[in-house]
């Protein structure tokens, strides 16, 4: 305190000078446009740079919490991504809808579940072997379907196993129609791609467009009507130009076929016996 008072006594004029100088300069920048503007812009620059420096330091100090929140956000997104990916996987069983639709059409029929044992691919005459045979009630010319649609027709039934002619076989000849329409044609396969087949003999006046559903017609007496076969992918003219040839995307993926159902209802037999009876009566009348 003593020193301070001494200092003040000795240098009081300096303090007075500073005070008066500050007063003068305040007046100067307050009442003179030019100096005032220079002062303001200079002060603004100084304030802005100090503010920016402060902000830089502040954001640097906040980096850790920003990092934490980013990490937790990232984790949350990762979890959500996993969950959605899983949901997407289950959603791919969109075939479930089709499977239920296929099975709904078979509700009045007896079906026998079977497993595909061998699936000889390649060549235009591939066969499928299933683990059910005559002992289980499988007979020749029974229809075989999977959850995704028509698979084929039983060709030969052994004691324990059966041989199925799939759709993708040149011998296969299943009667099909466009869903909701009466026009029908025959399902054929060109031996190239197991996912794609054709329907021939659709009349030109049929209303055909891409995406329509092709189902069994029921005329072949192997399959009940209304079983899903595939969807129309291309519409072409047939070779003779008299009808349409429809390119199909088959519902059944033969490369990935595990579980099938054999339609064991004596439907075919009943119809066949009716045909035989009719034929016999025709002969009688003649």
């Amino acid at each position: 305190m003593q020193h301070l008072l001494e200092f003040l006594r000795k240098y009081h004029y300096l303090l007075l000078f500073i005070a008066l100088e500050i007063l003068s300069l305040t007046l100067l920048v307050r009442f003179n446009n030019f100096q005032g503007n220079v002062w303001l812009s200079g002060a603004n620059t100084a304030v802005a740079s100090v503010n920016r420096w402060y902000l830089d330091v502040w954001s640097y100090l906040n980096l850790q919490s920003a990092n934490q929140s980013l990490t937790s956000y990232n984790t949350r997104l990762q979890l959500e991504n996993d969950r959605l990916r899983e949901a997407l996987l289950t959603l791919q069983a969109d075939s479930a809808r089709k499977a239920s639709a296929v099975l709904r059409n078979l509700v009045d029929y007896e079906t026998l579940p079977a497993k595909v044992i061998s699936n000889s691919k390649g060549g235009s005459n591939s066969y499928i072997v299933i683990d059910r045979g005559q002992r289980h009630g499988v007979r020749g010319d029974m229809g075989v379907v999977s959850g995704n649609g028509v698979v084929g027709v039983v060709y030969l039934a052994g004691e324990e196993y059966s041989l199925v002619i799939p759709v993708m076989n040149n011998k296969s000849n299943i009667s099909c129609r466009i869903q909701g329409q009466r026009y029908f044609g025959y399902l054929t396969w060109d031996g190239k791609d197991s996912r794609h087949a054709y329907v021939d003999d659709i009349p030109r006046h049929a209303h055909v467009e891409k995406g329509l559903t092709i189902e069994t017609s029921g005329h072949s007496s192997v399959f009940p009507p209304g079983i899903f076969v595939g969807t129309i992918e291309t519409v072409e003219n047939s070779a003779d130009g008299q009808s349409y040839k429809l390119g199909l995307l088959l519902g059944t993926d033969f490369a990935n076929l595990r579980d099938v159902n054999v339609i064991t209802t004596p439907y075919k037999a009943a119809v066949d016996s009716l045909f035989k009876k009719a034929a016999a009566e025709d002969e009688l009348h003649q």
């Binding site: 300096l14 000078f17 008066l20 100088e21 003068s24 305040t26 007046l27 100067l28 307050r30 003179n32």
Partner: peptide, 20 residues
């Protein structure tokens, strides 16, 4: 002087330096 020259503070601040 400043009041009459319409330069408040200018001459005064310079003259303070001289006085110091």
């Amino acid at each position: 002087v400043d009041i009459f020259s319409n330069t408040p503070g200018l001459t005064a601040s310079a003259l303070l330096v001289v006085a110091l």
